[in-house]
Design a protein around this nucleic acid. Structure first.
Lengths: 159, 159
DNA sequence: CTAAAAAGTTAGGCTCCCCTAACTTGAGCG
DNA sequence: CGCTCAAGTTAGGGGAGCCTAACTTTTTAG
């Protein structure tokens, strides 16, 4: 029984983990601010997470993750980081865009692709001769000078 | 004014494009079957797409894409194909998984990352010496024999 | 040509999750 | 201590989108 969480609830968990770390404690107000929703909307999500045993929640009290909630939140964070890292280091997307898109992909990437991506990033980060040559080739290929019509379908990938 | 479409409506458009091509004509019944929803649920989506000028829809009649609807559907298909291709050819994910995940990523990948990915795939498909060496290295890295503890965070990426 | 089957639509209901506005709780200051 | 105000919750409402069941239209087959 691997309870399935909506993307929304996953975002709640991840946000709570972040807040626990940066603010020592998670407050409904801050969760709302991070998720860009109104405080009144947060309560429902918290109740739902409480019912699933993922957070400790009592009305008017601080919110903490349970062990299983923490596990899920950390897993999400890992996914986020791997995807973000791929976008930034391999595709060479700017940091903000990479982060925003990672935020969405982390929820939907399937387990197999994720594992392969982890492996891929581990490989890339070993920083071998092959990776170096490959990435240099990519940079050249996508650079204005290096494009030389070989990249017909390539939209301006080098703004 | 770039009207924003829900992922659901995007799926409708893409499905209609597929059906127009494979069946000559799109029927509500077939749309429902492809999207794994009940026929009764389709009508609402069609009305919404009609209101946005993306399909030609009259009750009880066949459904066709308008020019702008077709453009969006084709764009989505391109995204799908690029992402699918990346998952399959670069990450070496099996075809079914790649297709299923591409189906989801196509809706959420941002424009910049997408353009970079297009460029990346064009580069990879040039099949240069560098790419060949890089990919061989990746296969080795993820193969059971080649893993030799270097890949600590690497979950079984080589089932 | 007509009756049955198939396809499509409508209507009512449900879930999820957001919003606003009003109300309750609790924490800090005088 | 008690009051004030920020923080949190509740209640009512809405949109998106799905479902089922009943109903309408179209197609098809005799």
């Amino acid at each position: 029984m691997t309870l399935s969480l909506s993307e929304n609830l996953e975002d709640y968990l991840e946000t709570i983990l972040d807040l626990e770390e940066s603010e020592k404690v998670a407050r409904a107000k801050d969760i709302a601010a991070r998720l860009n929703i109104k405080p009144g909307s947060v309560t429902g999500g918290l109740k739902s997470l409480e019912a699933k045993g993922l957070i400790n929640y009592q009305p008017y009290a601080y919110i903490t993750l349970t062990a299983s909630g923490r596990k899920i939140a950390e897993d999400l964070r890992n996914r986020h980081e791997i995807v973000r890292s791929f976008l930034e280091k391999v595709l060479l997307v700017d940091a903000d865009t990479a982060d925003a898109t990672a935020c969405k992909i982390e929820h939907i990437i399937d387990e197999r692709s994720y594992k392969k991506l982890v492996c891929f990033m581990n490989y890339v980060e070993k920083d071998t001769q092959e990776t170096d040559a490959f990435m240099k080739g990519f940079v050249d290929f996508c650079s204005i000078g290096g494009n030389r019509g070989r990249c017909d379908n390539c939209p301006e990938c080098h703004e």
